Computed example of a mutant assay.
Amino acid sequence: MNNPSILYPVFALAAWTGLVLLLIPFVRIRAVRRHEVRGSDFRLGESAAVPDAVRIPNRNFMNLLEVPVLFYVVCLLIYVTVLSSPGAIWLAWTYVGLRVVHSVVHLTYNHVIHRLVLFAVSNGVLTVLWVLAATRLVH
Rank of each mutant, 00 (worst) to 15 (best):
M1T: 07
M1V: 10
N2L: 15
N3H: 13
S5R: 12
I6C: 13
I6L: 09
L7A: 14
Y8R: 08
P9H: 13
F11I: 09
A12Y: 12
L13E: 06
A15P: 00
A15G: 10
A15T: 08
T17R: 02
T17W: 02
L19P: 09
V20L: 09
L23S: 11
L23H: 07
I24E: 03
P25V: 02
P25A: 04
R28E: 00
R30Y: 01
A31R: 09
R33E: 06
H35V: 03
H35T: 05
E36D: 06
E36G: 00
V37F: 00
F42L: 00
F42C: 01
F42N: 01
R43Q: 03
L44W: 00
E46G: 03
E46M: 12
S47C: 02
A48V: 12
A48T: 11
A49E: 13
P51N: 07
D52P: 06
D52V: 12
D52G: 08
A53W: 08
A53N: 06
V54T: 08
V54M: 08
R55D: 00
P57L: 06
N60L: 10
N60F: 09
N60T: 14
N60S: 10
F61C: 04
F61R: 02
N63S: 15
N63D: 15
N63G: 15
L64N: 08
L64P: 05
L65F: 03
L65N: 12
E66S: 07
V67E: 05
V67P: 14
L70Y: 11
F71E: 00
F71G: 01
Y72N: 08
V73L: 05
V73N: 04
V74M: 04
V74F: 02
L76W: 10
L76P: 00
L77P: 04
L77R: 00
I78F: 13
V82S: 08
V82A: 08
L83Y: 07
S84K: 03
S84R: 09
S84Q: 14
G87V: 09
G87K: 03
A88K: 00
A88S: 05
W90G: 13
T94V: 02
T94M: 04
T94R: 00
Y95I: 02
Y95T: 02
V96M: 12
V96D: 08
L98I: 06
L98D: 04
L98V: 03
R99P: 14
R99Q: 14
V100Q: 14
V100I: 15
V101E: 05
V101H: 06
S103K: 11
V104F: 12
V104I: 15
V104K: 14
V105W: 12
H106Q: 14
H106K: 14
L107P: 07
N110R: 15
V112M: 13
I113P: 01
I113D: 10
R115W: 09
R115Q: 12
R115L: 13
L116D: 02
V117L: 10
L118Q: 03
A120Q: 00
V121A: 07
V125Y: 13
L126V: 05
T127W: 14
V128K: 09
L129T: 06
W130A: 10
W130K: 13
V131C: 09
L132A: 14
A134D: 06
A134F: 10
A134S: 10
T135N: 13
T135P: 01
R136C: 09
V138N: 10
H139F: 01
